Amino acid sequence: MPDYRQEIPFFDTAIYNPKQRSQIDLAIQSVLDHGKYINGPEVYEFSEKLSTYLNVKHVVPCANGTDALTISLLALDLQRGDEVIVPVFNYVAAAEAVEILGLTPAFIDVSNKDFNIEVKEIEKRINSKTKAIIITHLFGAAAKIDHIVDLAHKYNIAVIEDIAQAVGTELNQRKVGTYGDIGCISFFPTKNLACFGDGGAIITNNEVIANKAKMIANHGQTNKYEHKIAGCNSRLDTLQAAILSVQLLYLEDNLNKRRAIAEKYQDGLKDISEICLPVQQQNSFHTFNQYCILLRSKEVREELQNDLKNSGIGVMIYYPKPLHIQEAFARYEHKVNDFPVAEDLCNRILALPVFPDLREEQLQYIISQIRNFFNQ
């Protein structure tokens, strides 16, 4: 087999499709020609296209995914001290948005099968202060959002879906992000739907929430120089919106490529007993923003990680430390073993390359290196 040492990054942001590159170049040139770099027509056009794709009534573009979460919480008119349920095995953005607004993150452990929030633990954590739940559809796998929404309605709690890693993911033939009150998106370059920098959006079917989010994202303005509330400055650049409209055209094709890569990993690694492979719940469409395996122990994970890196294969750990033992949340006095599943995942998880332009020979090289490591 050819030697691909130093040739396989964990993620490659280059665009190799000549037609796609040409369309992006034209889209950028169009913005340069009209010079409307803030709130240009491409921002509205992309919002409309994304609304159609997700089958959601309102899209509010913003500067990044963390802003989308923060603005969403502000749009719900929560009060200081209100609790917001957050999965403890997660990127920091959700808990960070809760914390900086003076709200309280109520951490919940996750499932060791799909890495998403453990539904049966949610009701145990709900109390009179619980006002919202943030659900992250992690790695492109749909959480049990239908059950979560039913539970939230029972207690009159708002649901925010973080689909930063899951644009295009479906449950029961419905796009995630549209089940709850609000959906939040990041268009960071490594996401399923990606721009060439930072970008984000808020999606909702609730007109009141949409109007409030638009106002917050634009300095709290109802009209120019008329500020109804104190807001922030969070806008999706016209250049990024133009790029995203092109990227959206290729999204489904790229998702299918991710799924095809994941299927080949599943087939190539299924007989290695030392590895647990990702699963997806029934009636769902997993989009594999990450392809994460579980190793037998932290030591085996470290050995395999080093072996793959030495073979020129980029890998990542999502995530090396759960949120409850991060220094940023030390004031809540959580201890080790408070969330055993999340802590175990952090010790054993490893993400393999799954970007759409991963070539077949590269994929087979990765699989062969893993099999060789386990003497398979």
Rank of each mutant, 00 (worst) to 15 (best):
D3E: 07
Y4H: 08
R5V: 08
I8D: 10
I8S: 05
T13I: 14
T13F: 12
D25F: 11
L26R: 13
S30D: 10
V31P: 00
G35P: 06
G35D: 11
N39G: 13
E48N: 11
V56F: 02
H58M: 01
V60G: 01
A68R: 09
T70A: 08
D77T: 00
R80D: 05
R80C: 05
D82A: 08
E83V: 03
I85D: 00
I85G: 00
V86R: 01
P87T: 07
A94R: 04
A94S: 15
I100G: 00
P105I: 07
P105R: 03
F115T: 14
V119K: 14
I122M: 02
T130L: 11
T136S: 12
H137G: 04
L138V: 15
K144H: 13
K144T: 05
L151D: 00
H153V: 00
K154Y: 08
V159N: 06
A164S: 15
Q165D: 15
G180V: 05
F187K: 03
G197M: 09
V208D: 03
A210R: 02
K212T: 13
K212C: 01
A213Q: 04
I216R: 03
K228S: 11
N233Q: 10
N233C: 06
S234T: 11
G268Q: 04
E274L: 09
I275K: 00
I275F: 06
S284M: 10
S284Y: 11
Q290M: 11
I293Y: 05
I293E: 01
R296M: 07
R296Y: 08
N306W: 01
N306C: 07
S311Q: 14
G312N: 12
G312H: 13
G312M: 13
G314V: 07
P320E: 12
K321L: 04
H324I: 09
Q326E: 12
A330G: 00
K335S: 13
V336I: 13
N337Y: 12
C346G: 07
R348Q: 13
I349E: 11
A351I: 05
P353T: 11
P356V: 04
L363G: 08
Q364S: 09
